[in-house]
Design a protein around this nucleic acid. Sequence first.
DNA 1: TGATAATTGTTATGGACCATATCAAATATC
DNA 2: GATATTTGATATGGTCCATAACAATTATCA
Lengths: 173, 173
Amino acid sequence: MTVSKTAEKSSEKAGDATRGRKDAAGGPPEALQLGELSEQLGYVLKRAQLKVFENFLRCMASLQLTPAQFSVLLLVEKNPGRNQTEIASTLGILRPNFVAMLDNLESRDLCARIRSTNDRRSHILVLTDKGKAVLARAKKLVATKHESRLNELLGQANREALLEMLSKIANEF
Amino acid sequence: MTVSKTAEKSSEKAGDATRGRKDAAGGPPEALQLGELSEQLGYVLKRAQLKVFENFLRCMASLQLTPAQFSVLLLVEKNPGRNQTEIASTLGILRPNFVAMLDNLESRDLCARIRSTNDRRSHILVLTDKGKAVLARAKKLVATKHESRLNELLGQANREALLEMLSKIANEF
DNA sequence: TGATAATTGTTATGGACCATATCAAATATC
DNA sequence: GATATTTGATATGGTCCATAACAATTATCA
């Protein structure tokens, strides 16, 4: 990289498009037209996902939990006694990248790796007492501060319909 | 980082959870229970977004356009004569990160930077003829291969309802 | 007008996330 | 018992995202 040729070329085939801003009077900044972009599912989906994660992080600021960390705690709680590979793969996390995540959660005493006695290669994952307590508080925060806002914005019925359609896309697309 | 203490601790407060896999017979791998995870909007939203982007990339393989690049071309076509800052900011791209993106598109002769005569600091963005042609082909591919599959999966009415709800989240959340 | 502030594109840089190759220890397979 | 596979881990590189800083240019305003 580090090319950055300042593009002196091809300025002939653009007609007289070099007017720039400030053409006539000093009207308002003239917001851009999104055009077909607002109909592109991928675009809207990504923007919505960023907003939801952003709000999630705000709601979880006191517990310092990211969406990914929250999903790990939820899955370990629901499936105690599973190893790293199983938890990571069902979350779509690659095993190498899961190591640092667990190092973090374990250093905060939220979950623990336990060497399995049946298969001494694998680490069984469990929530610590503190992990269970933190997860319980996290669930309350998500329900009262995060998901509730979705209900206000969309309505209960619409929120459920949205979830169903997204699940369909995630699973059958 | 690079801590990786193998966590020999806290194996007493986990009861006898060290059974690991292969407890009784050699039944099927026993898929994990997602539990409340499948009700978390953020989780489902993210999974759906990844699937949609993945499919988008497959549909665009012949044109080598990413979702972000496609959105830039769309926006420049709809708003000719705008500068880098305007295009980047409405897409949520920071100006420093937009430079390499434009270097790429310009090196492929899809768009061009033109020094504005009104404000010689700014670069006016326009699509080249090749850029317009490629974008036209991209739109056809998206419509026939990408968005059409969404209609098959959800139905026209549901697809529109989904888009509306996502827009609401993206704009009002 | 001229000194100062603000804007534009750019570079450098660091962090977070994602993907692959590889390894030692342990287990499975034959 | 030799070979292959699995598990957790490390190293590494790529991409995306965010901040600071800079030169050139323009805006501001005393």
